[in-house]
Each structure stands twice: as C-alpha cells, then as structure tokens.
C-alpha cells in the first residue's frame, strides 16, 4: 500500500492517476496499487455531498495531488481572494502532498473563460506572474508547483523564452515546477521547436511532478501540424519517448496520467500507469547500477 497522508509531505516517485467520480467505488472496493491520485481543486469546492465523502475516504489510503485549474495566475487583474480562500480551505482539509497550478490565465471582466489561455512572455508579464505566485504561496501557506502550458499561438511581443520565464519565476518565488511532457510536445510541434531541447534546458531539479496525457492532431489554415492538448486518449508514443528522455535527466519523479475526456474504465487507466511505473523503475535501476559501478 502507498504512503498514508500522515507520512511524507511529497508525492512518491510513482505513477498516479486522475480521480474520476465514475471510479470512486472501484478505487475503494479494490484498493488498486496506484502511487497517488490527483483531483482538480475546483471540483471539490462544493459545500458537501458525495465528492467530499469519497475524497476523504480515498485520501486515507493514497497520497493526494491537488491541481488547480481556475486561479488564473497569469491574469492582468488581481487574483480572486475568494478563490484563494477556497483553495486554502481544501488544503487545510485534505493536506495534499502537492498543490499545483498553471502558467495561464482564465478569468476576465466577463467571467471565467473555462480554458487555460496563453501569455506573452515579457518583463511585464513576468513581474505580474511573480507577484501572483508570491501572493498564492503566502495565502496557501505552502509551496506551489507551476505548470508549463500547451499553447496554440505565439505573441509577437514575447521576448523571453518559456523555459527561462518559468525558471525565473521559480528562482524569484521559490515555487517548484510541474513539467507536463505532453504540453512540451504540443507546444514544440505547434511552434516548430525541438521538444528534446526544451527538456534539456528545463530546470529538472525544481520539478515536483510530471504530467503525461494524450494529444489530438489536426492542421492549421496553412496545413501545418496543430496538436491539441485533449486528454482523451492514451499517451502518444512520441510523448512516451520524450518522457524517457526526461527521466534520464531528472531521475524518477511522481508522474500523473491525465485522462479527462472520454474517461475509459479503470483497468485502462491502470495499464497507462503501469507503463509509466515500469519506466520509473527502469530509470531507478539504471541509476543504482551507475552508482554501484562507480563505487
């Protein structure tokens, strides 16, 4: 069985799964060997009911990663204090081993826009995001992991490379990073960049969690490949290879399989997790072998 929440204040370097309502009963009945579960914070912001009842039971058995989707850290306007308070309430109640959010914005005067929208990478936005990460960590009383985004467009104004942008935020705020390997592939293909180079430049020592997911593929108006971060399929083979490349640099890290649309049966999710677990174990072995040979 996995570490209980009273133990380590970090996720295990194992594969984890997104917890979906359709799998609550399966998880409690079968207690599958899964490294951790992740939930979207906003789905547990109701006052009561079955979601909380199940999450309480499941966090007694598994480590929890709390993943925010609506804080809008990249917004020009101020952070939503009520939302920070709701997040703090969840963190105090469930004591998750990890809390993460996105380098993106999703709220505006017109309300919540229900998508993770892109930011120009400029000194102005860098300062804004740093302020917001500081404020968030202050309000939540804990370290945040900030996730690299999937993007479909570029900003003519951008003057800072995305990896440098994230590394600077981490350096100034003390936050950690969540490395979404699928997002790296999506953005690299969409913007004609080399995904492996992105990983090679990424400050992997600051990464507290990795995300893997399946993308969809289409073309843009010029017929160029356009990948969409869809979370509706198994992880694609090029992303698996990029994950392997990442692990070789970073060593084993907690790795979430994200599958949020067309959610399959639990056995299919477990098979995805098993593949990542095998790669994590192989990387751990390889590193042990190196140490033994060196000694």
């Amino acid at each position: 069985m996995t570490a209980s929440k009273t133990q380590a204040y970090a996720l295990p370097a194992r594969a984890g799964l997104g917890l979906k309502p359709e799998h609550y009963e399966t998880v409690l009945a079968n207690r599958p060997d899964v490294g951790f579960f992740e939930v979207h914070a906003e789905n547990y912001m109701g006052a009561g009911g079955p979601p909380h009842r199940y999450l309480e039971a499941i966090t007694e058995l598994y480590p929890l990663s709390l993943h925010g989707v609506g804080l809008s850290i990249g917004a020009a306007h101020e952070l939503d204090k009520a939302h920070l308070k709701r997040l703090r309430g969840l963190i105090d109640r469930y004591r998750p081993q990890s809390f993460s959010e996105h380098l993106a914005w999703s709220t505006h005067d017109t309300g919540f826009l229900n998508d993770l929208l892109p930011l120009p990478y400029t000194p102005e936005t860098l300062a804004r995001v740093i302020d917001h990460v500081d404020e968030t960590q202050q309000a939540l009383g804990r370290r945040l992991l900030l996730e690299n985004p999937s993007t479909y467009v570029l900003f003519a104004d951008s003057t800072i490379d995305e990896v440098d942008f994230l590394a600077t935020i981490a350096e100034r705020t003390g936050c950690g990073l969540l490395l979404d390997v699928n997002n790296v592939m999506v953005s690299a293909v969409n913007h004609r960049l080399d995904a492996a180079t992105y990983i090679d430049r990424f400050p992997v020592e600051l990464v507290g969690e990795i995300h893997l997911a399946g993308y969809d593929e289409t073309v843009d108006d010029a017929g160029d490949r356009l990948l969409i971060d869809a979370h509706g399929t198994a992880v694609k083979s090029d992303v698996v290879a990029l994950y392997q490349h990442t692990l070789a640099r970073s060593g084993p890290l907690p790795t979430l399989i994200e599958w949020d649309n067309d959610v399959p049966d639990f056995a299919t999710l477990q098979a995805e997790a098993a593949r990542a677990d095998a790669m994590l174990a192989a990387e751990a072995l390889r590193r042990n072998g190196q140490r033994i040979r060196a000694a």
Binding site: P51, L116, D260, N261
Partner: peptide, 15 residues
Amino acid sequence: NDCAAGAGTTCAGTS
C-alpha cells in the same frame, strides 16, 4: 447515479 455528477472543471482542451 453519481456518474452523471457533471463535467466539472478541466485543464484539457478539445478537438
């Protein structure tokens, strides 16, 4: 049953 408990918030896009 509870499976129809709603889409909720997601961090995924869609095609």
